[in-house]
Design a binder for these strands. Structure first.
Length: 852
RNA sequence: GCCCGCUUGAUGGAAUUGGUAGACAUACAAGACUUAAAAUCUUGAGCCCUUCCGGGCGUGCCGGUUCGAGUCCGGCAGCGGGCACCA
């Protein structure tokens, strides 16, 4: 009766051993090459989910592989611990946010530890710990002194019920996601980081990030949104001021038929003060939804102000000034000129309000009718004075020069990227360390008074910011003049916390934000692994923060993440009961291919499509349950098998079973082999049987292939190769001369190859093979190059490109021998049907193609 | 609307980057072991035609380049993602 691998016992044993021996502790060692592996740290929601299991398994494979390759590996873990859910828990369950958070951390730490990750837990950090956020405040003060921070009025999403600003993502169809109240656009004084100072550099440096996914670089490129064009000044008739517009099509300036202002433009505001109709129009625009759907369906609306502006290049030509709902105040200058002939939106607007439509660009085929549809392609300029006959691109340059010479405008670049609004009216975040003094204005808190700690005694009974309601906390003396002053009660956006944690991990207990020696050795992160959902915000903010830290002398490099890997998500079918409630996978039973029932009621269940696991649809599987039933190695192996890591992975019980079977089988093959292996360290026999020799070659080919595939993040292929080798070693006839030796050393290599993937079983098998060292500390196996090249090669023989047979030939065999052998194959002759050879192609060691 | 990616058996996927398509798994079927089940082992299978031998077709669709295309080029369709009254 075959035994069974006791994963529960084994996994606990090896985890304890690794811990006792401190094998994952990292220390600066300048004599060795370093490798910094980091996965995006989790929000402590209370439990790990399958997304975490996948993320941390991927990172752990990299970390363990690199360690075996001789690198000094830093692989830390921490907690993105500030944020709104803790406050909601406090309000709903009457638990203090700190207790809720630290309890969650304790639970999740335990769950993560059961996965057997090779983490240096001595470096654990939580962003809500004063030891962390004190240093964040210190960084803020440095940024403040360097002019990278400013406070300005901005329109923000304000939830009038919850009394807080909301991020754009928290506004759904113009309503607050929690309260459901219509969100107001409110002008508030807010703190910003000047990320736009670095817009150019953040864009340019994208091209240096050659180990980042192309997709992510592209998304950041779009997000930064560099756009070249020109400012054009339009003098207002009868007034002394000018309206400045931005355009990317200065070449179509002669086709202008109106100028349109944003409802929020200062001139609009001024005019509306004296014009109630305009004021009503502006109010209407502002009350309209800002969601994508609302905008899509919204009609273009305009209001003629009655003002005219003088065309900058055509004396005597005047165009009307309108206010239009589609002109955004926070892009460009908040004013545009409309050229209906060559812009869809302007065309819609002009058609609606009866404004002239002038063609100024001829298509290459000479077509110039724009009365029905605007023409937006390339072409030749006409109706445009000195630009006539030029192509669009040349005309843009020419008109820019002319505008500049006349003082009527200038070429410019505008960006979609806005400054980063970092203040939040919330309690559970890092306090912004400034004081507001009636005499001195905004005064930074001196560094020796940091941290500005959050008060513990807060109440969540009232809506709004508990810091603001606190009876005493905000009342302090001004650090400058000593007079009574008020603390800033806003806290930082939690994206600030995660914008530098990777640097903090280098010296997590330092009394400075970073310790130079440590950060210069460890940074940047050689391999960062995480979800693609952070492709823009977190990664862009971190890139900005690293530059700001460089400018303020904390780090020497600009880019935090040299290598980035974005993993796919974990998906599962969803289930809905007969009465329309979502059901967990364990609440259903599959009776047959098309019958699924709810266990509790026996009623049929509607099976939904595979989609990302989410609590709201209950299509989740708890990692702890899987680890308990099958073990961490099974969970890890399943995460690595089958699906390429960058693609979505479909969770299936069958897949888990498959991984579990392989674990058990590998254990049996090595711990209870049917025939014994050669003794440990036995010398290679003088001769191996041909089969044994072939398997031994396969061992080396697998070492080479797995090494390459681990490096290239093709973990699913690496797993398949490991399985193939397992099959070969197991099928090798034990009686063949040398088989016992090949089996011992083949399995030893195999165990090393699977070590990063299924480390507990790896250790168990390494010990079973008679070793008393830790597999974790063993060097990576090396493939013998001589064994990677076969002496005989099977060549495919094609006739007219179709496979008709194969021949075995010596490696690098001469063309004549190969030709002869190929032509001698009966099936090949049959396919040739007696026709003469017209052409014969021999690709060395690959293929023969006979053309008849 | 703009930009990107993907499309291979029943399913997940593999294919040395132009050279034997379907590795490795999962599911399925048949068999062995078992009182039975589980576990394990063996065998089968891209589709179609054929009693055997064998043949034809086949990587979303149409076309091209090539001795040879899943792979390169052009067009189309479907699915997914990002951005979006961005001037």
């Amino acid at each position: 009766m075959a035994g069974r691998y006791n994963f529960t016992e084994s996994e606990a044993k090896w985890q304890k051993r690794w811990d006792d021996d401190g094998v994952f502790r990292a220390a600066v060692d300048k004599s060795r090459p370093k490798y910094y592996v980091l996965e995006m740290f989790p929000y402590p929601s209370g439990r790990i989910h399958m997304g975490h299991v996948r993320n941390y398994t991927l990172g752990d494979v990299v970390a363990r592989h690199r360690r075996a390759l001789g690198y000094n590996v830093l692989h830390p873990m921490g907690w993105d611990a500030f944020g709104l859910p803790a406050e909601n828990a406090a309000r709903d369950q009457k638990i203090h946010p700190a207790k809720w958070t630290y309890d969650n951390i304790a639970n999740m730490r335990g769950e993560l530890k059961r996965m057997g990750l090779s983490l240096d837990w001595s470096r654990e950090i939580a962003t809500c710990h004063p030891g962390y956020y004190a240093q964040q405040q210190s960084l803020f003060l440095d940024f403040f002194a360097a002019g990278l921070v400013h406070r300005k009025e901005a329109f923000v999403n304000w939830d009038p019920v919850d009394h807080t600003v909301l991020a754009n993502e928290q506004v759904i169809d113009g309503k607050g996601w929690r309260s459901g109240a219509p969100v107001e656009k409110k002008k508030l004084s807010q703190w910003f980081f000047k990320i736009t100072d670095y817009a150019d550099e953040l864009l340019d440096a994208l091209s240096t990030l050659d180990r980042w996914p192309e997709k992510v670089r592209l998304m950041q490129d779009n997000w930064i949104g560099k756009s070249s064009g020109a400012y054009v000044h339009w003098p207002v008739v009868g007034r002394s001021d000018k309206i400045q517009v931005f355009t990317t099509r200065p070449d179509t300036l002669f086709g202008a038929s109106f100028v349109a202002l944003s409802p929020d433009h200062p001139l609009t505001t001024e005019l509306a003060a004296k014009n109630p109709e305009l004021a009503a129009f502006v109010a209407k625009c502002q009350s309209m939804g800002t969601s994508a759907v609302a905008i899509e369906q919204q009609e273009k609306l305009g209001f003629d102000t009655g003002l005219k502006v003088q065309h900058p290049l055509v004396p005597g030509k005047q165009v009307p000034v309108w206010v239009a709902n589609f002109v955004l105040m926070d892009y460009g200058t908040g004013a545009i000129f409309g050229c209906p002939g060559h812009d869809q939106r302007d065309h819609d607007f002009a058609s609606k309000y009866g404004l002239p439509i002038l063609p100024v660009v001829k298509a290459p085929d000479g077509a110039a009718d724009v009365s029905k549809e605007p023409y937006v392609g390339p072409g030749t300029i006409f109706n445009s004075d000195f630009l006539d006959g030029l192509d669009v691109e040349t005309a843009k340059v020419k008109v820019g020069e002319r505008l500049k010479a006349l003082g009527a405008g200038e070429p410019t670049t505008v960006w979609r990227l806005r400054d980063w609004l970092v203040s939040r009216q919330r309690y559970w975040g890092c306090p912004i360390p400034v004081v507001h003094c009636d005499s001195c204005g905004v005064v930074p808190v001196p560094k020796d008074q940091l941290p500005v700690k959050l008060p513990d005694d807060v109440s969540f009974d009232k809506p709004g910011n508990p810091l603001d309601h606190h009876p005493t906390w905000k009342h302090v003396g001004c650090p400058k003049c000593g007079k009574p002053a008020r603390r800033e009660t806003d806290t930082f956006d939690t994206f600030v916390d995660s914008s530098w944690y990777f640097a903090r991990f280098c010296s997590p207990r330092s009394d400075k934000p970073v310790d130079n020696d440590a950060v210069d050795y460890w940074m940047g992160v050689d391999q960062y692994v995480g979800g693609v959902e952070h492709a823009i915000l977190h990664l862009l903010y971190s890139r900005f923060f690293t530059r700001a830290m460089k400018q303020t002398g904390h780090v020497k490099l600009s880019e935090p993440f040299a290598g980035l890997f974005t993993q796919g998500m974990v998906c599962h079918e969803s289930y809905k009961s007969a009465d329309g409630k979502w059901l967990y996978p364990e609440e259903i039973e599959r009776k047959s291919d098309d019958l699924v029932i709810e266990i509790a009621t026996g009623k049929p269940v509607t099976v939904g499509r595979r989609e990302v696991m989410s609590k709201s649809k209950k299509n989740v599987v708890a990692p702890v349950r899987i680890i308990g039933e099958y073990g961490a190695d099974t969970a890890r192996l399943f995460m690595l098998s089958d699906s390429p890591p960058e693609r979505d992975l479909e969770w299936s019980e069958a897949g888990v079973d498959g991984a579990f079977r392989f674990i058990q089988r590998l254990w049996r093959e090595i711990v209870e082999p049917e025939t014994p292996f050669a003794p440990k360290g036995a010398a290679k026999p003088a001769t191996l049987s041909p089969e044994a020799e072939a398997v031994w070659r396969q061992v080396h080919k697998t070492i080479a292939a797995v090494s390459e595939n681990l490096e290239g993040f093709r973990f699913n292929v690496a797993v398949a190769q490991v399985r193939t080798l397992t099959n070969a070693l197991s099928e090798l006839d034990a009686k063949a001369p040398g088989a016992d030796w090949v089996r011992r050393h083949g399995f030893e290599a195999l165990v090393k190859l699977v070590g990063p993937m299924i480390p507990h079983l790896g250790e168990e098998l390494w010990a079973a093979l008679g070793h008393n060292t830790l597999l974790t500390l063993e060097p990576w196996p090396k493939a013998d190059p001589a064994l990677l090249i076969d002496d005989t090669i099977t060549l495919a023989v094609q006739v007219n490109g179709k496979l008709r047979g194969t021949i075995d030939a010596k490696r690098d065999a001469g063309e004549d021998d190969v030709r002869e052998a190929a032509l001698a194959i009966p099936t090949v002759q049959a396919a040739m049907a007696g026709k003469p050879v017209r052409k014969l192609i021999v690709v060395k060691n690959k293929i023969v193609n006979i053309v008849v």
